[in-house]
Each structure stands twice: as structure tokens, then as C-alpha cells.
Simulated scan of single mutants.
Amino acid sequence: MSTKTPSHVLLEHYLKTLKLPSVLREHRKMASVCQAERADYSTYLLRLIEQEIHDREQRAAERRLKSARFPVVKTLDSFRFEEQPSINQPLVRELAHGEFIKERENVLLIGNSGTGKTHLATALAFAACQMGFKVRFFGVTALVTQLLERREERQLDRFFKQLERSDLLVLDELGYVPFSKLGAELLFEVVSRAYERTSVVVTTNLPFESWTEVLGSQRLTGALLDRLTHRVHILEANGESFRLQDSLRRRGQRQKTKKP
């Protein structure tokens, strides 16, 4: 068992003070490796700093992914584009590079239930996390409920400020549940505050002309759409439901298995 010298103890104290955990963890092992390879001091220092930077980036990516609060992590690699030919795959691939976030542009995914809109929205948001963007994912109904609760608790301004620190907001499944007047107004406030500051991805099963059924006010709907569609990329998903296709596929497999 090696005994630490006073200089080692002091070095490790300074590394803790400077918050360099990877250097603290690796410096003795790296010294042995570099000594065996006859590497110079610059190489030794370079390798330690590279390790520290790599580990910091990894921890930051993990924090971004956790704070995004995805219900399930999805990627573009697992999306079956061949079964949804109505979706503009080149545009999706382009959006995955994240330029729309830098330009403060929005994305609307519109189409039938079960066609992969949430999958695509999550995949674009996951790619954004990997590129260093701050992301928050919300089911729209859950977001409105949270907004109403924060208002009741007098914490609404604090919540809005938290949202404003995001680079990308995902609002999933607009159109399944109509909102109260106050709920619709609070949702509009989220979109209004994000306008030209934070990119927004919205998934919906409703065409624009039907949004009033959910928001309750033609005036409010018009104002919200005006902000969302000012600088927007629209993706339409008009194919059959993945869930229906998977169900039919499983049924067919079971029937084949039962045949003598």
C-alpha cells in the first residue's frame, strides 16, 4: 500500500478546492502510465485536462437530460420513417442539427394519433440536449395543471423564469383535453414569453381551424397561432397509427402460430 507524501496530500487538497475531481481521481494513475510511455510533462498534463473536460461534459449532458424530464427517451434512429412516408424525413434530419433553436424558430408536428409525433418531438429535443441546449418537455394538459397550481401557490412568476432559461420547450399533445379560460390564458402566456426567445415544439392532432375547440377563444387562438407560426417548420404525419400497425402485426403473428 503506497503512502501519500505531504506534497500529495497538499496537491489533492488543492484539486478538491479547485473542483477538479477527474484530475484528483486520475493523476497518480496517469503519472504511472506516462512514466511507462516516457511521455513528457506536457503530455501528462494534457491528458489529465482532457479527462477533466470530457467528464464535465458528460456530467453536464446527464444534468440536461434529467432536467428535460422526458417521459421516455426516444431517438431518430429508432423511428420507422418507412412506415410514415407522409413525414418529411429530410426536414426532420435537418432540424436534428439544432439550427432552428439557434434561430429561435418553432416546430409544429400535426397529424393523426399514433403516427409518431411525440417520438419525433422527443428525438429532436434529445438531440438538442446532446448539443448543449437546455430543454423542458411537458404534456400540455399537465403543464396547464401545473400553471394553475403555481398560480394558486403564488409561484407563477418563479415558474415562468425557470421556463425562460430553457432554449427549447416541448409542448406535447395539444388538442386532447379542452382548457378552462384561465388555463388557456396561462398557456398563451407561456408561448408569448417564449416568442423569439425560446424555440417551441408543439405536437397536436388538431388542424389549426380546430384549436379554438381546445382554447375556447377565437381571439386567444389567433394570437397564440400568430406567435407559434411566425417562424415555424411544419411536419405533417397523416399515416396510420404505429400502435394500430403493431397490434395488427402481433395479431397476424399469433394467428400464424396457431395454424397446425
Rank of each mutant, 00 (worst) to 15 (best):
I53K: 10
S166Q: 11
E57Y: 12
E173V: 02
A123N: 06
S210Y: 09
E153C: 11
L206Q: 04
F137Q: 04
S86L: 06
N205T: 07
A237D: 01
S180Y: 05
R47H: 07
A60M: 13
L244F: 12
E50M: 06
K134I: 13
Q84H: 05
P90H: 10
S86A: 10
L124R: 00
S22M: 08
E149Q: 15
S217Q: 06
F242T: 05
F70D: 03
E103C: 12
I101W: 08
V177M: 08
F138E: 00
P6H: 13
C129N: 08
G116D: 01
L15G: 09
P6V: 08
T118H: 02
S192R: 10
E83Q: 13
D226A: 09
T229I: 12
S166H: 01
L95F: 05
H54M: 14
E213G: 02
K256Y: 11
R251A: 14
Y14F: 14
V201L: 06
V177T: 09
L11Y: 07
T122E: 03
T141K: 08
Q130N: 15
K117M: 06
S241F: 01
S210A: 14
V201G: 00
K258D: 09
L124D: 03
D55T: 12
K117N: 03
R104C: 09
A142R: 14
R158C: 10
L65N: 08
A184P: 03
G98P: 03
F81V: 10
T145L: 11
A36W: 10
R254N: 12
L45P: 00
L187K: 02
L15C: 09
S32M: 13
L65E: 11
G222D: 10
V170F: 03
F126S: 11
Y44Q: 05
E83C: 09
R80G: 08
Q162N: 13
L206V: 05
S166L: 07
E94I: 08
S78H: 11
S241H: 07
T43F: 04
A60K: 13
Q35D: 10
R227Q: 06
S210G: 07
G175E: 02
V72C: 12
A31I: 05
F133W: 05
Q130R: 15
V201M: 02
L11F: 11
E213R: 10
R154W: 06
G111I: 08
K181F: 06
K29D: 15
F242I: 05
S199W: 02
Y41M: 04
T115Q: 11
G239A: 04
K134W: 11
L163Y: 03
H97Y: 12
